[in-house]
């Protein structure tokens, strides 16, 4: 598989602040590559250096074989960009925006079909200022796709969207990849990265602290699973501590949390409870997430 983006030892400072401090990674063609981390971690600076909108202080960037600084115009014909902060004129209509932006490119797709696909067909004649947050984001995605790009950049695509709109956006991004395009996205929602990305780079304070598939990242920290359930009344949990894989048991009022590792953990806990004749309810398991990975790697909670 060939390489879409190659970044080597990227540095970018704003005054005394080292926004990006020695970042290297590659993005392969056809994958959804995510960069996650808290606000201010350097994600947007990195993506904008890759897009050619910012000039790196040091390091090399190659995108589709081009240098984004030197071959910016050529590159921008072949990529699609959705910016974290951007807007259109408040009175510009949806169809006019697509018509205008498509005139900037030698190659373009049918704007009408694109609006149809993004669920904006009935908003064709609406002014930009009349659109909801989700509709504006979808319009920006449409503008990023109008030139049938090989590589799409999505910077904080779902920030400010409600959960339903966010899920719809995820389907959309998967659809982009299914059409053979490469996606490079940033997000500060760990869940989004976990559900959407083939590979994830976790960024903190200008550096990449980990880079792998979400599954590998989660496995790498060896975090415990949790089995959580509720029991009414008094009971003795000694037997539970003997179940293979269990590391500790916490009781908070009627709720019990069993920590442990291994495939058989849930089964072991459930059969132990049944052997003891304890009536439990609301049992669920909690798998470690990228949030736990971030916590394990940085010693800090991800804050939104």
């Amino acid at each position: 598989m060939s390489i879409a983006i190659e970044v080597n030892d990227l540095h970018k400072s704003y005054g005394p602040v080292r926004a990006v401090d020695g970042v290297s990674f590659t993005v392969e063609e056809g994958e959804i590559f995510g960069m996650v981390g808290p606000n201010g971690a350097g994600k947007t600076t990195t993506i904008e250096c890759v897009e050619g909108l910012r000039r790196p202080d040091r390091g090399t960037v190659k995108v589709l074989g081009l240098d984004p600084q030197r071959d910016g115009y050529e590159l921008r014909r072949r990529i699609g960009i959705q910016l974290q902060e951007a807007a259109l004129h408040p009175r510009l209509k949806v169809w006019e925006a697509l018509d205008l932006f498509s005139s900037f490119y030698p190659r373009r797709v049918d704007g009408k079909a694109l609006l149809e696909q993004l669920g904006l067909a009935d908003k064709r004649n609406a002014a930009f200022e009349k659109l909801s947050g989700g509709q504006k984001q979808r319009l920006f995605v449409a503008l990023a796709l109008i030139n049938d790009p090989e590589l799409v950049f999505l910077d904080e695509l779902t920030t400010g969207l409600d959960p339903q709109a966010r899920r719809a956006m995820w389907d959309l991004v998967r659809g982009i990849r299914e059409r053979g395009k490469t996606v490079f996205l940033t997000t500060h929602y760990m869940e989004e990265a976990e559900r959407l990305c083939d590979r994830v780079a976790i960024m903190d304070r200008g550096k990449i602290v980990a880079l792998d598939t979400p599954e590998n990242l989660i496995r790498s920290i060896g975090a415990e699973q949790r089995v959580v359930f509720t029991v009414d009344g008094q009971w003795d949990d000694t037997l539970l501590r003997g179940v293979p894989g269990v590391t500790r048991v916490e009781r908070i009022g009627e709720r019990t949390v069993v920590y442990g590792r291994g495939e058989g953990l849930v089964g072991g806990v459930v059969s132990a409870l049944e052997r003891m004749g304890i009536r439990f309810r609301d049992l669920r398991t909690e798998q470690p997430t990228l949030e736990d990975v971030f916590l394990a790697l940085t010693g800090r909670e991800m804050r939104e």
Binding site: L53, E74, I81, L83, A87, H89, P90, F104, Y105
Partner: peptide, 17 residues
């Protein structure tokens, strides 16, 4: 206003000269 709203930024992200 175009600069402040980010309209110019959006144009810069295209091959518009």
């Amino acid at each position: 206003a175009a600069r402040e709203r980010g309209v110019l930024r959006r144009f810069r992200a295209t091959p518009l000269h």
